[in-house]
Write a protein that binds this DNA or RNA. Structure first.
Lengths: 210, 210
DNA sequence: CAATATTATGAACAATTGTTCTTTATAAAA
DNA sequence: TTTTATAAAGAACAATTGTTCATAATATTG
């Protein structure tokens, strides 16, 4: 959120764009400078070196809550919303598509994931583990309240999370080729709908058994 | 499948390893040559230039059937297997984990996906679309035979495919950090099991309705 | 205003890059 | 064996890379 101003800000955002588009290694200092509209040597008044720009972007990424599925609310506050909660979460993924900045960060993350171990740690802990654990907690509470059928909450969390991630990646890929993303974008909501229908305890059916 | 012999083969496989690990751009001709055990200039007796090595790898990838979920069988041949079919497909994804060559190709594909439009076309057509279409066909037939509940077959295909892809990517990432993949590897089978249980038509329950 | 810190320029450097050239060794074909 | 294609080595080149330096312009501060 809190960013710089003036030239430093321009360098930062230009570098992020280029890193996300072509990768860190393929982006040159001259290219960044040219796009910002300054001499390459002027960059070094704002950043120590190229790696410093990269580290700054990673820092930003770490404090960005790239995907914060509960918007800082606790599982026990929200689990009762049931289907609506799942739809909200799916929608948060979808919204990234329309938020230019988050979209860039996500593409940057995917671009450099296999080249940067720091990014892999971030991806695992802050992106994957954190969200899956929250989802597990939510599903567990739903089970206790007999809103959904009892199974392994962690499996359920993975099964709910993974399509959302996949659809996100699909859209990022489509955008890279300037292809339409509308069809893929509908899958977020469909997934939440489908998933809920499959795990919920159907009270009408339940009644017929008694 | 059909590969070269001697030095050319060594150059090819060394380059693939390095490209998959560090990315194309970060890998130098000197590094390849050193690992093969020859002079850098000797590479040019086998490949026109660096890009020629890349193109050769992509060609190999295109003829490799990276993920061929039906092993060349037609949907109508296999759909009757029901749950077993889904488990087989999940297992094909899992097996990549243990096949060194396919594993390298997959990591290479993910590494270079956003840098190479040719790879994106391959990913989309041969990896994603092809498999999802086959899955759609299978699910459609299962619906007609009243093996599973009726919904949008394409949605079902996406929902079944995406966790498998995600778990695959997870394992590739874990391997990059030499972390254990055993927990993630169990998710393939669990996914197939879970998914089938959710979409199948329960005949015992069905009977009680009549 | 004057003094000082900040930011820009433009040229240059040293290292690394992919690639080519000539020459020598090796293998295949006659 | 002789001839000829193939593959290797080793040096070198030209381009590109990140980075530094001395200097000039611009803001900031006293």
């Amino acid at each position: 959120m809190s960013e710089f101003k003036g030239t430093k800000q321009k360098i930062y955002s230009t570098a992020l764009s280029l890193f996300a588009e072509q990768g860190y290694k393929s982006t040159t200092m001259r290219q960044i400078a040219k796009e910002v509209g300054i001499q390459q040597s002027a960059i070094y008044n704002h950043f120590k070196n190229k790696e410093d720009i990269l580290d700054t972007i990673i820092q930003q990424l770490e404090s960005s809550h790239l995907i914060n599925i509960f918007e800082n609310k606790e599982p026990q506050e929200v689990y009762k919303k049931g289907k609506l909660l799942l739809k909200n979460i799916a929608n948060i993924f979808k919204l990234i598509t329309y938020d230019t900045k988050t979209d860039l960060l996500f593409r940057f993350l995917m671009q450099e994931l296999f080249n940067n171990s720091k990014l892999r740690v971030f991806y695992n802990e802050e992106f994957y583990q954190k969200n899956v654990k929250k989802l597990s907690a939510v599903f567990f509470m739903m089970m206790q309240d007999e809103m959904i059928e009892a199974t392994d909450p962690l499996l359920l969390a993975n099964e709910f999370f993974s399509p959302l991630f996949f659809y996100q990646l699909q859209i990022t890929r489509l955008k890279a080729d300037n292809q339409s993303t509308s069809a893929a974008a509908t899958l977020f909501e469909k997934h939440a709908e489908f998933f809920w229908n499959k795990i919920k305890i159907d009270n009408s059916k339940k009644d017929t058994l008694f």
